[in-house]
Design a binder for these strands. Structure first.
Lengths: 210, 210
DNA sequence: GTCTATAATTGGATAGAC
DNA sequence: GTCTATCCAATTATAGAC
């Protein structure tokens, strides 16, 4: 106590802040906003409740902090540019696989559930989620479809709408079931068929009739 | 008080039971399971809390009762049989319109949000929701696609999968945004374009190449 | 059978010691 | 800056009057 303070620059406070955020993610995503308790978060973070409040003010603000952070961190943008270039079907398939890894990710599913559940009480977070997730995804993919149309490999009049259709085909009932926790595990073979079928349907619909 | 009891057969108890159920639907769908209170339900039903407990035992059981009732009542099956018969595109469009009315219905959206939110704590209800909703819908539609394939109007190898793709195209980001409460109102013209585009994409993908 | 009143617990938030 | 102890409101559930 006397000669402590040796490393005033070691961010002791930041360590606790991180611990609280990590705990809050687990508790909020597991229990939802309503049933999550600040006690549970403090306990899991290994700090006192007062410390939690000193960092984040109140429950709503803490909730907002973790939702925004997750929306910002979890959605890694799909790489549509600089691809294997010439093979359209293969490129679509690669994008499809990445997309399905994203939307079937346990943490993103949990985030989606919580954001949907609280969309009436916290419309701001629903908006942020949509813009960073589904919105961005379609927005980024549309230019690729546009270019492929210019090159004559596709025949698409409304690229943005076609992009949404592509991802809707991919989400499908597989995603619905995952969101509902019904028949939660899907074997690799079934997933492969699902992707193959979605890509094939999209290509049959939008390939030029030679 | 003395000469009351004139109509012992009037189902006074049933009236209160109905009032409680109605109130419970509003409160649970509005607030979610966690933030819904038995006080609020009793108050809205115009009865005392003790009466609520005497009818439904506890909060979980009351929640289960209303979820099951809603899953049973809200999903009206799409009429795929005995249609305008010969015009395939028109029939698909009619089914599509009915389907979109269903999934954009405010009460079904609210039910969906609550069921998703509680899918971890109440997997049984998620299962019932899926079976009565998305599952039934695709299951009932598949035979129609099968028959159209036999008639040579469509070319579908896996009718069940194609059925899911049809409804996935129709749900799309329109449904996602509605679920999230983002950009909640959609004008009729935009909805019409959405349906037209989804049906057209499905037909281009699955019509036989003459 | 329904109500009023209350028990028992929990959860959000804070005051004050160190 | 962090912890302990506590306040206060709300909530589930029930006991007992009528």
């Amino acid at each position: 106590m006397a000669q402590a303070q040796e490393k005033p620059d070691l961010p002791q406070r930041e360590v606790k802040r991180k611990a609280i955020l990590t705990a809050a993610v687990e508790v909020f995503l597991g229990a939802g906003f309503g049933l999550a308790s600040m006690d549970a978060i403090a306990q899991r973070a290994g700090v006192s409740k007062a410390t939690v409040y000193s960092h984040f003010g109140n429950k709503q603000k803490l909730f907002g902090a973790i939702i925004k952070a997750l929306c910002h961190d979890l959605f890694t943008p799909l790489q549509t540019s600089e691809t294997g270039a010439n093979n359209l079907e293969l490129t679509l398939r690669r994008i499809a696989e990445h997309f399905l890894c994203l939307i079937m990710d346990a943490q993103i599913l949990a985030l989606y559930r919580v954001v949907i559940a609280e969309s009436c009480r916290f419309p701001e977070f629903a908006h942020i989620f949509y813009e960073n997730g589904p919105g961005q995804t379609a927005e980024n993919f549309a230019p690729y479809l546009c270019k492929q149309t210019e090159l004559g490999h596709l025949d698409i009049a409304d690229p943005r709408r076609a992009a949404e259709q592509f991802f809707s085909l991919l989400s499908g009932h597989v995603h619905t079931r995952a969101l509902l926790g019904v028949e939660s595990h899907i074997e690799a073979g079934e997933m492969d068929k699902h992707i193959t079928s979605a890509v094939a349907t999209f290509l049959r619909a939008y390939r030029p009739h030679s």
